[in-house]
Design a protein around this nucleic acid. Structure first.
Lengths: 260, 260
DNA sequence: TAGGTAATGTTCGAATTAGAAAATTTATGA
DNA sequence: TCATAAATTTTCTAATTCGAACATTACCTA
């Protein structure tokens, strides 16, 4: 029972490849929860279409050629996160206290925040902590616990308790997926408790999610759109989600829609 | 034979990786006219320095947010730390549980440990955690608390308590200085309690210190040479320290004296 | 010249990945 | 409900890559 349709998964693969330059087969197996054989089939198909290049052990970006229009449409990963990160950063005043959880989007936000001053940040992600530590005016609190090797997230009961000991102005949450009924979903159950602590202890909650997250399924429910104040994304939402947000009283901000 | 010196070839490899995102081992073999094994040696070295990421079948760009290795390399005493790191790593069996505290030397050790397997590591340093997380067979526990911006150390009462909840085979300690009477010294008082927890909870304690640490003064006393089992350093110790170690029953290992 | 060292090549067993084919599950429409 | 097609897993074998140990080469220097 995979949470991805084949076409969805294939475009997600293209996004990963576009973002990282090279993705190992095993990494995709872990990401999508399918068999290596299935990933190889995908890679062979995408490779035949010239959308990526196969390597022993994974796949990398396609050699520059034609086809790029289509590929570009499917791979908006990095730019999308960048736009989301910049808009989110613009919502944060200097001197705020805030929380950042795990995810590539929140890592992008950490980078975008480096120009701010005197932020107090609580996080459970060692990459976020490391980025932010470059700014001497920041005070960074990192939750302790077991480190998830592939993404640098810190998990465990202690991490959630640690977060519970703070009360923050703003909580910034990344998620694995959002269901149509407004459920916020995560792949990793270990992340749930930390995220819930953030929801509880933030005066204002900002949810960051690129367009592919909407409708994407994941096993664990961490919360509900009702708990969120602002959603920052990179493209107009499907109507069903707009309705859900409207009911929940959630403000939607589409990054890069005005300019670019 | 080969038209490239090793250093030339390695920087050429970095260029290829930077340009293409991912380069297959075979492609480099063809490019440089050397054996796959030679390429692998290069890739392992560059990978350990964090300048690229190894994959099965080739190498790709370094994971997000690298540059510290460069800064590290420019710092003085890198070679000494490297030698100490390699010798220390050789003292650690696969599958051990160990502790690593804060300091540039312990960060070098973290890199040197990447080829080990199934280590259980407890640390209060986010850089150590990040390096080690590249190895999927490691289980990493990171203490929580406030992050010291300039070196990535995690401090606070919670950090020491966190360490106290473990019992480890080996504790690896870096220090700011060592007094002639055998006192282990630290500049930052916030580091003291964590280090003492390590001394308490390690079955064997390895102290790592380059030659300049001996005789250097610092304000805070964290422990005594009596608590240490092995000292790893990079040059023969002054006689006064040899005597102190002898009395304390401490084994001294000088890295790089026998081989290399 | 003899010894030492750094770099590379060779060899080989172990580990990883690929691919083909069959079995199973899932989705869909009559 | 059943039949059918699509998607995925399973299973097995072949191909590739890896790492360690040892041999070789080139070069330096005492």
């Amino acid at each position: 029972m995979s949470a991805f349709k084949p076409s969805k998964r294939q475009s997600a693969i293209l996004n990963m490849v576009a973002r990282d330059g090279f993705v190992a087969t095993e990494a995709m197996v872990a990401e999508f929860g399918v068999t290596p054989q299935t990933i190889r089939r995908d890679l062979n198909e995408l490779g035949q279409e010239g959308l990526l290049t196969r390597f022993h052990g994974g796949a990398g970006q396609a050699k520059s050629g034609e086809n790029l229009p289509y590929a570009d449409r499917l791979r908006s990963g990095v730019q999308a996160k960048q736009k989301i990160a910049e808009m989110t950063a613009s919502l944060i005043p200097d001197g705020s206290s805030l929380f950042l959880n795990t995810g590539t989007t929140t890592e992008a936000i950490a980078q975008a925040l480096l120009r701010h001053k005197n932020l107090h940040v609580v996080t459970n992600n060692i990459n976020v902590a490391r980025y932010l530590s470059q700014n001497d005016t920041f005070q960074i609190m990192l939750a302790g616990g077991q480190v998830r090797n592939h993404d640098g997230g810190v998990t465990g009961a202690g991490a959630a308790d640690f977060i519970d000991s703070f009360r923050m102005d703003i909580g910034i949450l990344g998620v694995s997926g959002i269901d149509e009924d407004g459920s916020l979903l995560e792949f990793d159950p270990a992340e749930i408790r930390s995220a819930q602590s953030v929801l509880r202890n933030s005066r204002k909650v900002i949810l960051v999610a690129d367009q592919h997250k909407f409708g994407r399924r994941a096993m664990n429910r961490m919360g509900d759109l009702l708990d969120v104040d602002i959603v920052v994304t990179d493209a107009p939402l499907p109507i069903s989600f707009e309705k859900t947000c409207g009911k929940a009283g959630v403000e939607i901000r589409v990054a890069g829609s005005a300019k670019r």
